[in-house]
Design a protein around this nucleic acid. Structure first.
Length: 623
RNA sequence: CGGGGCGUGGCGCAGCUUGGUAGCGCGGGUGCUUUGGGAGCACUAGGUCGCAGGUUCGAAUCCUGUCGCCCCGACCA
């Protein structure tokens, strides 16, 4: 390709719309253009990068026996209703773009493809003899992200490799999961990325085990907690650790304590000399379910600990009845929320700031039930259905306390020396605390968790039988009985990966692509187009490099040399051949974009050497 | 959705407080000079100041509404 024909437009200034280096550079170097928020055009240069990434993904997946396929992006609502995800994905905070066709049938624009693929599996897979099967596709996904961000990092339309495997038993699923783990490591390594595999939460996809692959970068959206020895790494939303040792409260008879306006752990601890670890912190939250029901949740944690909302959402989800249709959201139950949502709750009955773990379900009795005066007439909103029983969940840090300080369930009153038995409670213990950097590791208490940031470029899940059961994807096993398929699913954010590669490989002059995914491997720069010897040698070299099988780009623009050097650096082409003053003697200059190599050599020697140099880097495997 | 910020030639910005001529740098075109790290000079084209309404003799500037974009939080490849 010739730069003169490339529709190349590079920008001198950072575009105002971009914040992080990779986004700025992709815009400045002419790789992408924004069309709308979270929606980008992939220009020819980036398209080549995406093709190269895709080729690596295909090679590695095909080598495992996975089958490439292509599924519809326009998906009927009933498939999603059958899996139980339609309302969760379309209502409220749902991320699925959806529409009605001319017949009034509802459709969704695929944010992911579990439903479609599982319905196909139900149709096609009948016998254990066909299993296991692993299908994948590389295709555009649509997600109405709450906040699109950072260019290709979080787009509303993006390219994803998604794969789904089907198995006769869990052991086969585990095997495939492990194989995908290995394939993913090879893929990212071949793309020239430094990644770390971390334990992850399964999120809305569901299922049991899951692991994310993070490109380590400052601009990453995720917080990773890992041990120094490298044996443990997890996304913070999933991470577990040992809480710091607490200061035990001496066993004593339970007594009341006047605590006017001491509604925070800090105030309470400061006023009475308690250590925060002696206090049980009680949080009241409200879970919204897909069927419209509202479930109040009472969480107890040790006073020094923070709530991990992902763990809480998982804990609550697991305790919902099937007819509640899944959890939509969970948020603190505050006086403001009661008012703005017109919840049928008597605010006066809830002693905010003084909640104890034994808060009575009676506080949920509605005002109208108590006074006979409804406020429903004031609102046109339908009254949400409030479940009149608290779901009480307790973190181990709180459950393990023998004696503690907690709220007295009435204003300005706490209790000292309370105990679970004394309060008449048998706590339902669930891990709910957020692990923090500096916490001791579970596997080795001599090590501490350290924080780093990462960009999630891949995620693999063991789904189990959630979707196959919901969509009736069954097969006949060896003994002739029918059972649901075991499933795994595996994703790679292809367009995100391209930007993550820039985030990890750039300098003050521009992008430094790893050879394996660079749009071009070498750029031949004719320093002065007006000089016939330079022009001729440049053209010859370009043709020869192409013939040698290299992805070569020729900068044949009639610009000053400096302009062409700047652009070559900005574009990030890994190797540059300068045909300049030495051209009349057949000498050229070879420059490596990232690194210190820079030397003069005869054009003939260059042709002999460069294919070998680039070929060695092309495989991309990091040492 | 809550909080913060921004919309002025293709790009980056000033002008707005205190209403009166739309300006700078980069980029584009032409010519001459220059030619190994974003050249110089000259000429030149290009703007409904996001949009709608209002106040005013007069609005980029003041007021109201609206749309779009970016950043911080919940979402996720």
């Amino acid at each position: 390709m010739r730069v003169s024909r490339l529709m190349l437009v590079t920008l001198r200034d950072d575009p105002a719309e971009a914040e992080i280096p990779s986004h700025k550079l992709l815009l400045r170097a002419g790789y992408i253009r924004r069309v709308a928020s979270g929606i980008y055009a992939y220009l020819p240069l980036l398209f080549r990068v995406l093709q190269k990434i895709s080729a690596i993904v295909r090679e590695e997946l095909n080598a495992t026996g996975a089958l490439e396929t292509l599924l519809p992006q326009l998906q009927p609502a009933d498939l999603w209703q059958r899996s139980g995800r339609w309302s969760g994905y379309t209502a409220g905070e749902g991320i699925m773009f959806h529409l009605s066709d001319r017949q009034g049938r509802e459709l969704g624009l695929g944010p992911t493809h579990e439903e479609v693929i599982t319905a196909l599996a139900a149709d096609l897979l009948r016998s254990y003899r066909q299993l296991p099967v692993n299908l994948y596709q590389i295709q555009t996904k649509f997600r109405d992200e709450i906040r699109p961000r950072f260019g290709l990092m979080r787009g509303r339309e993006f390219i994803m490799k998604d794969g789904y495997s089907f198995h006769a038993d869990e052991a086969s699923l585990r095997e495939c999961y492990a194989e995908m783990d290995r394939a993913y490591r090879r893929i990212f390594s071949r793309c020239g990325l430094k990644t770390v595999a971390v334990e992850a939460d399964s999120g809305a996809i569901g299922g049991s085990a899951s692991q994310e692959f993070m490109v380590t970068a400052e601009a990453g959206e995720d917080l990773i907690l890992s041990s120094g020895d490298g044996s443990y790494a997890a996304n913070q939303e999933r991470a577990v650790s040992l809480a710091p040792e607490g200061v035990p409260l001496a066993a004593q008879p339970c007594r009341d304590l006047a605590t006017p306006s001491q509604t925070s752990i800090e105030a309470l601890a400061a006023a009475h000399g308690f250590d925060p670890t002696q206090i049980v912190k009680v949080l009241l939250l409200l879970a919204r379910c897909a069927d419209g029901s509202l479930l109040p949740v009472l969480v107890s944690l040790r006073g020094d600990q923070l709530l991990n909302e992902v763990k809480l959402a998982n804990g609550v989800s697991a305790r919902l009845a099937p007819e509640q249709g899944g959890l939509l959201s969970i948020e603190p139950l505050t006086a403001d929320l009661v008012r703005t949502e017109r919840l049928p709750l008597d605010l006066a009955a809830i002693p905010f700031g003084y909640l104890g773990p034994d808060l009575s379900d009676a506080v949920l009795a509605s005002t109208e039930a108590r006074s006979g005066l409804g406020n429903a007439a004031l609102s046109s909103k339908p009254q949400p259905r409030l479940i009149p029983k608290l779901l009480r969940l307790t973190d181990p840090t709180a459950a393990q306390l023998d004696a503690f300080v907690c709220g007295g369930n009435s204003p300005d009153r706490h209790r000292v020396g309370a105990s679970w038995a004394g309060l008449g409670l048998k706590p339902e213990v669930v891990d709910l605390r957020a692990a923090q950097p500096g916490d001791r590791c579970l596997h080795d208490s001599n090590q501490n968790l350290v924080a780093s940031r990462g960009i999630e470029v891949g995620h693999i899940f063991q789904l189990g039988r959630k979707y196959s059961e919901a969509l009736g994807a069954r097969f006949t096993n060896e003994s002739g009985t029918e059972e649901a398929l075991w499933m795994g699913c595996y994703g790679i954010g292809v367009s995100r990966l391209a930007q993550a590669a820039v985030e990890q490989n750039h300098d003050s002059n521009g992008i430094c692509w790893p050879v394996a995914i660079a749009p071009f491997e070498v750029i031949v720069v004719i320093a002065n187009l007006q000089e016939p010897s330079q022009r001729q040698l440049g053209e010859e070299l370009y043709t020869s490099l192409l013939a040698a099988g290299l992805d070569a780009l020729l900068d044949d623009r009639d610009e000053r040399a400096g302009v062409k050097f700047k652009d070559a650096d900005l574009l990030g082409i890994p190797w540059r051949v300068v045909v300049g003053r030495g051209a009349k003697d057949g000498q050229v200059e070879l420059v490596q974009r990232q690194g210190s190599l820079k030397r003069e050599l005869a054009a003939g020697d260059l042709l002999a050497e460069l294919p070998g140099l680039i070929g060695a880097e092309r495989s991309g495997l990091l040492a």
